[in-house]
């Protein structure tokens, strides 16, 4: 029923987001080197949908996710969440807004405080933000736990007694208990076994259906992203290379990097042999990325113009944007 109310507006708008990390803190020279972890990316997410963010490790996915939630200061750009510009909001106000945007972490072991029982991990912030009246606190937490597939007697247990999958459920319950609108999922599956991954994906999908959450789903597993997302963004060295509807990206990948990425996914069928694009060369250092198109050192269709000019992210079909000189830039 929540889903019926979803209108077409965007819950999150990221405009020209930049996050640079200085390379060394005690650099003597004035013009310090920076790792451009996120370098000018823009995208929007519709309410109640899931956007997948894929890319190689170190390409800035986590940094993008954390910058959006203002978990650290950003170097430039704007994040507009639900009509409010998060980059301008005061710390106190931001803290009060936090319950609305949550995060699920990659490592189920280090993301739960080892000295707190599960009930407290999930409920601490619920109490602090007074999400429910005091009298209903207990039953509310238990309800959330049941929704996330945790048994009520786990309430008093400590994280060390749980397996990776159960810990990830606790982590999800902690986010869900705050009644958020938007959840950043930073590779929530990569530390889990295949059979447990399916349980967690189903749980996340069910919760989305029930409560209309919006997800930003970060992953390097393309098959999972294909399954769970509505739109997909492909990142490479801090920049968005291709972005659009899931169908369009998977059926008609335009960017050479996306093509390589898609062809590299191993297929679970011994009779299907993919015509694989093997990228030669390694990922360049993010401290000094190649000039022009960042992908040109590994691109098979690299042209002369690619070294000179940075390709702009342009829309070629409806809801399908690509940054590559192979397609007309004007």
């Amino acid at each position: 029923m929540e889903k019926a109310k979803i209108d077409n507006d965007y819950i999150l708008e990221v405009k020209n987001l930049k996050k640079y990390y200085p390379v060394s803190r005690f650099s003597i020279s004035k013009n310090r080197a920076y790792v451009k972890a996120v370098d000018d990316i823009s995208f929007k997410i519709k309410r109640g949908t899931t956007m997948g963010l894929v890319g190689e490790s170190g390409c800035g996915k986590t940094t993008a996710g954390r910058s959006i939630l203002r978990l650290h200061d950003i170097t430039g750009g704007q994040v507009v969440f639900d009509g409010k510009d998060l980059s301008k909001i005061s710390p106190g106000k931001l803290r009060r807004m936090r319950p609305q945007m949550q995060m699920i972490f990659q490592d189920p072991y280090s993301s739960l405080s080892p000295r707190m029982p599960v009930g407290e991990i999930i409920g601490e912030a619920v109490r602090e933000h007074r999400i429910v009246p005091k009298s209903q606190y207990r039953s509310y937490i238990l309800k959330v736990m049941r929704d996330c597939g945790l048994q009520p007697q786990y309430f008093y247990r400590y994280p060390h007694e749980f397996s990776g999958g159960q810990r990830q459920r606790i982590s999800i319950a902690r986010a869900v208990a705050l009644n958020p609108k938007f959840i950043v999922c930073d590779e929530p599956l990569s530390a889990l076994d295949v059979s447990i991954q399916a349980q967690i994906i189903n749980l996340m999908k069910d919760l989305q259906e029930q409560y209309g959450y919006t997800y930003l789903f970060i992953s390097h597993d393309l098959s999972v992203v294909e399954y769970i997302s509505d739109t997909i963004g492909v990142m490479y060295l801090g920049s968005m290379m291709e972005m659009g509807d899931k169908k369009r990206i998977f059926e008609n990948p335009m960017h050479p990097y996306t093509k390589a990425l898609l062809s590299a996914v191993p297929i679970s069928d011994p009779d299907v042999k993919m015509n694989r694009i093997i990228l030669s060369g390694d990922i360049p250092s993010p401290v000094n990325p190649p000039s022009g198109c960042k992908f040109r050192t590994r691109c098979q269709s690299c042209m002369e113009v690619c070294a000179r000019k940075v390709p702009k992210l342009k829309e070629y079909e409806e809801g399908h944007m690509v940054a590559c000189h192979l397609y007309s830039q004007d």
């Binding site: 999958g165 295949v194 399916a198 349980q199 297929i267």
Partner: peptide, 24 residues
């Protein structure tokens, strides 16, 4: 059989994924 089914692939897009319940 469960393992084969629980890995999402292009075909299984819209319905729920098959998942093996419980844990080791």
């Amino acid at each position: 059989i469960g393992l084969m089914k629980s890995k999402p692939s292009g075909k299984t897009t819209d319905d729920r994924l098959f998942s093996i319940k419980g844990q080791v």
